[in-house]
Design a protein around this nucleic acid. Sequence first.
DNA 1: CTGAAAGCGCTTACAG
DNA 2: CTGAAAGCGCTTACAG
Lengths: 353, 353
Amino acid sequence: MTRIDDVARLAGVSTATVSRALRGLPTVSASTRDRVLLAAAELGYTVSPSASRLAGGRTGTIGVVVPWITRWFFSTVVEAAESTLHLAGYDLLLYTLGGREHVRKRLFRTADLHKRVDAVMLVATNVQAADFATITRRAIPGVTVSSGTVVPGWPGIRIDDVAAARTAVAHLLSLGHRRVAHISGSPTAELTHTAHVDRRQGYRQELLAAGVTPDPRLDVNDEFTISGGTRATEELLRRGNIPTAIFAACDEMAMGAMSALRLAGLRVPQDVSVIGIDDHALAAVVGLTTVAQPAAEQGRLAATVLLDQLCGQSDESLFTAPLILPTRLVVRESTGPPRGKLEPDRLTTTEAG
Amino acid sequence: MTRIDDVARLAGVSTATVSRALRGLPTVSASTRDRVLLAAAELGYTVSPSASRLAGGRTGTIGVVVPWITRWFFSTVVEAAESTLHLAGYDLLLYTLGGREHVRKRLFRTADLHKRVDAVMLVATNVQAADFATITRRAIPGVTVSSGTVVPGWPGIRIDDVAAARTAVAHLLSLGHRRVAHISGSPTAELTHTAHVDRRQGYRQELLAAGVTPDPRLDVNDEFTISGGTRATEELLRRGNIPTAIFAACDEMAMGAMSALRLAGLRVPQDVSVIGIDDHALAAVVGLTTVAQPAAEQGRLAATVLLDQLCGQSDESLFTAPLILPTRLVVRESTGPPRGKLEPDRLTTTEAG
DNA sequence: CTGAAAGCGCTTACAG
DNA sequence: CTGAAAGCGCTTACAG
């Protein structure tokens, strides 16, 4: 394998000059730079990352931490972040926690992560107060996406989960629904993020504002997945006193709900309306009404903010408050007025009617 | 930051012994090992990856290359591979090509990748003959998942795409369909992988075996995505002479097809049957009949095979032929007999009938 | 603008 | 089983 000395010899300069020329430092004359680049190209030389890291102290790598990668929001964020980071010449080290709390702990409590990456992007991954110390002491730059906690010194990119939930519930209320159920992530299964906490709060706030007392029997927890939505909905049906509408905390749960309702012989939206949050790629296919959030944009922005920090040219306002991206209601076919409002008798609502 | 000398001093041994003890080499006495581990724990010492890599020549990192991460198959493979690799102490460097052919080229043609990772996992990423030389010369271990080409010296994990397609088409034929359309990836949009080539071949083979001549007007290319499936189906409808069944090369395209058909006022399966390949997490939700392939298992197996190679204890049979995992037909609600077979008159097929 | 030299923090023959 | 020493391949003050 060719090394920097080979290039230096061929170009007739020192290794220090090769190093400078290859990295585009301004302290190299144009003619020298050209000679070095030519020599490097001729030898097919690329710098050894290990040596460069050890000597230079920079890894050229960003660590991206996600709870999962198979869920729509996370994969979309990562894909957008990845292309931005690679374009800037950074590598992406992927950590999927997968509910393994000990992995998260090890990541933050030891110097491990810090020695592998120049900066960290935490997606829907909460950091506990005990971790702040580690992060701050090592002064590692970072950014959070869709995170419940604010990490001191790290910008945050997110949507307003409370407001998004209120928008969803307001839509159902405006259609005339009063028995509105909520299915959301469970505190134990979603340890790493807190979107479900905020969304539940928004659900309750909006109901209360409309004079509706939240009914705990209409509030079920499960995983933020399709099957989680299915199970939660089955539980709702099992409890009896079926709601006229279900607000699912994410589109994947909403789709699971639609599936469970259909299996139970209930029609969406004639018997039960369903709304989610996300605007998943499949939401349009299944006609799901939802509150859209810009996932790719959050990934792209987070990567950009991180790169700016590494260049030392961050917008200071980012450090004072999280950057909140807008959400918007997308009405499709899964929501409509409650049955009683239009057709009091189930029999008159068949397709033949 | 504490270094290896700090640990050595505290434990009263040389840095060489610390290095050996920490890596669990057998040439260290139990009592010495304990003393070293205790000292390391007390100082909160973790090895510097950069230094370790430079000195040892190993990176402890696996490069995983995927065309996209937002598609079901790829995210499922990566998530399974990730947990297996991290469990074994390896980091995962993610490269998402995103249709950027130049990224793939740079990755293989230069020594770049080789200097960052110990081994490579290529998911649905083809390698051209010109790349073989680079890979072989550098003798970097690797494994391919769902790859069309066989890389000399690398095991391959995959399904039999031709057979999977034939299973799908055979199901449609057995229901009585003769006008069977195919929607699949386009040669230009899916440069990196070749599943669409094999699946198209299986489609044609099965039709021909049944005495049906493939009609090029029923064969449309687009992206392996939901919207690709939607566009391809719209194109089919635009061409007129609507098929009684559509075989989509993947579930995402199939779901796009279902969506386009519904929008056009056609019912699935009464007017048009739809079948895919994958068994996407949402297939059950939308009632999609499909040929299931084990995505997570392919990721897990590929990671295991790679780790075995790095330990030098690979099963030799893996290098002689790709490991083919089984697929199986999962019949749901999106396929049924063609209309003519049961109900010759469209009017008699309404729900009221 | 350029070079000589130290140093980044480990691992690995080699010798014992 | 253990240690002294070389070396991995760069980058970075420092000096000029």
